[in-house]
Structure formats: structure tokens, C-alpha cells
Simulated assay, not measured.
Amino acid sequence: MPTPPARLLLLLGLVLGVLAAAVGLRIGSAPLAEPSPSPEPTSASPSPSPSAPPPLEGLHVVLDPGHNGGNGQAPAEINAQVEDGRGGWKACNTVGTSTLSGYPEHAFTWDVAQRTRELLEEDGATITLTRSGDDGVGPCIDERGRAVQRADADAMVSIHANGSEDPSVRGYFAIVAAPPLHDAQGGPSRRLAEDLLGALDDGDFTPSTWVPGALSERPDLATLNWARRPAVMLELAEMRNPEEAALVQSRDGRQRYADAIAAGLRAWAERRGG
């Protein structure tokens, strides 16, 4: 039997063991810390801003590439007489002019019109052409003029090149109907002409050396007389001038002309919208 001191030591050991077990139980039973939840954003993420509409959305333009590739093989059709819009009569159409090397006006106007259409459609505009290819006949000049109201378009640009016999003559010019038959042929057509001429000038083309101010007013062009919306005929170059003949026969030159027409229509649309 243990002696009293030994009993005391034994009792003390038992007490210490119980206390250690109690402390260990409390430490072991403590719950693990939960991971902190991700903080909620203090403000909503900004929504992506809606993309701006194309700059020419809602604009509708008729492009009229002058003449046609089949006109030369259809003399009876293109010489048939149509009303000129002022009580007179004109031939349905003509074959157009050409460079001295034989590059035809109809091919030039068709190519420039295609390039211009592509530029304007990229900006959201709707484009209507008065002919669907470069191997047909016509349409007649009165039909071309009426095309702008048939399409319910905002404006028409008739694309041409001139064929002065004097090869020293050079430069672009615009033609508007005068005297005007209605309001659209007055100020609105002149403003369209001004913006197109300004864009050609900005494109470093040469203004006409024989048409004062590069703006001609004529009463005898059925394409312009029949149009009931702002309408301009552009003579972009003199095809008998050697320098300008080289320009119209080059892809880069035709692209530059298209760039200028598109820029002029953008300027007109912006001014019209303001």
C-alpha cells in the first residue's frame, strides 16, 4: 500500500491528467475557420455601350453610270426619241466618248459607280444603280432621271466623263438643271454639286479649264430634268486629255474618283442632316 506521500503524488497526477484532458478537449473541439466569402462588388460592372449607327444609315442614293456597253450595237434603240422633260425630244442614249487609245466612257463610269457603291454601303447607305451591268443597252435618259423618285431615294449622281476634241482641255465639272423645274432642282441640287466639287478639289483633281467655277447649268439634259430630287451630273475627267486619260484608265485613278464622290455625298448628307 502506498505511503501517504506517495498517495498524494498519485492523486496530484490524476488531477493533472484530468485537467490536461479537459484542456485538450476544448482545443480539439474548436471549429475550423470558415473561408471568408468573396466580397460582393460595390457597383455593377458597366454594360457595353451600344455601337454607333453607320454614318450614312438611312441615306438612299441613286448612282447613274453613264451610257452602257451594248449601246454601240443597238443604234435603233438608242436613237429612238424620248421626251427631254421640257417639251423637247432627245435620243434615248448615246455610246459616250473614249480615250484616244479606245478605253470607253461606259466602262469608266461603270467601274467608278461600283467602287462608289461599295464605299457608301460600308457607311450604311442604300444604293440603287440605273443599270445592272456594262453589256446592256440603255436605259434611256428619261428613265434614268425618273429612277430617283421610283426608288424613293434622297439624291442622284450621274457619273460621266467628257470628250472635248481639244486635248489640252482638262478637269472635272458638275452640271445641274437650269432654270429649275421645281424646288429640288434649285438650291438642293446646287448644294449637292458644291459638296461633290469640293470633294474632288480635296482629292487633288483639276477643275475644268473651260467651265467657269466647274459648274455648268443646262436645260437640255433629260436625266436631270426628269429627276424630282437633288440631282447632279458629274463630268469627272476629259478623256481626250493624255494625263487624264491615263488617270481614268488606271485602277488607282478610278478608286480616287470613287473616294471623292463618296466623300462629297458624306459631306452633303451631314449638311443636310444638320
Rank of each mutant, 00 (worst) to 15 (best):
G124F: 05
V157H: 12
E40N: 10
I78Y: 02
T3M: 10
R228P: 01
W89V: 14
V23L: 15
H60T: 13
G24H: 06
D142W: 10
V169Q: 13
F108W: 07
T3Q: 11
S132V: 02
A21H: 08
E83Y: 09
P37L: 09
P2F: 08
A214L: 06
V18I: 12
C92S: 14
E105G: 06
L236W: 02
P219G: 02
Q149C: 04
N68Q: 04
G13Y: 06
V62N: 07
A237E: 05
V23C: 15
P207C: 03
N225P: 09
A21T: 07
M233Q: 15
K90Q: 14
A269H: 15
T99V: 04
R115W: 14
D134G: 06
I175N: 12
G274N: 12
G72Y: 00
A155C: 02
I261T: 03
L265N: 06
D220E: 06
R191T: 07
E121P: 09
L63V: 01
N241M: 03
E244V: 13
H106P: 01
D84S: 12
P55K: 12
G102S: 08
A153S: 15
G17D: 06
D204K: 15
W226Y: 06
E143R: 09
L12G: 12
Y103H: 08
S98Y: 02
I261R: 03
A20M: 15
G213L: 01
A80M: 03
G13F: 07
A113H: 03
R144G: 00
V82W: 04
A178W: 08
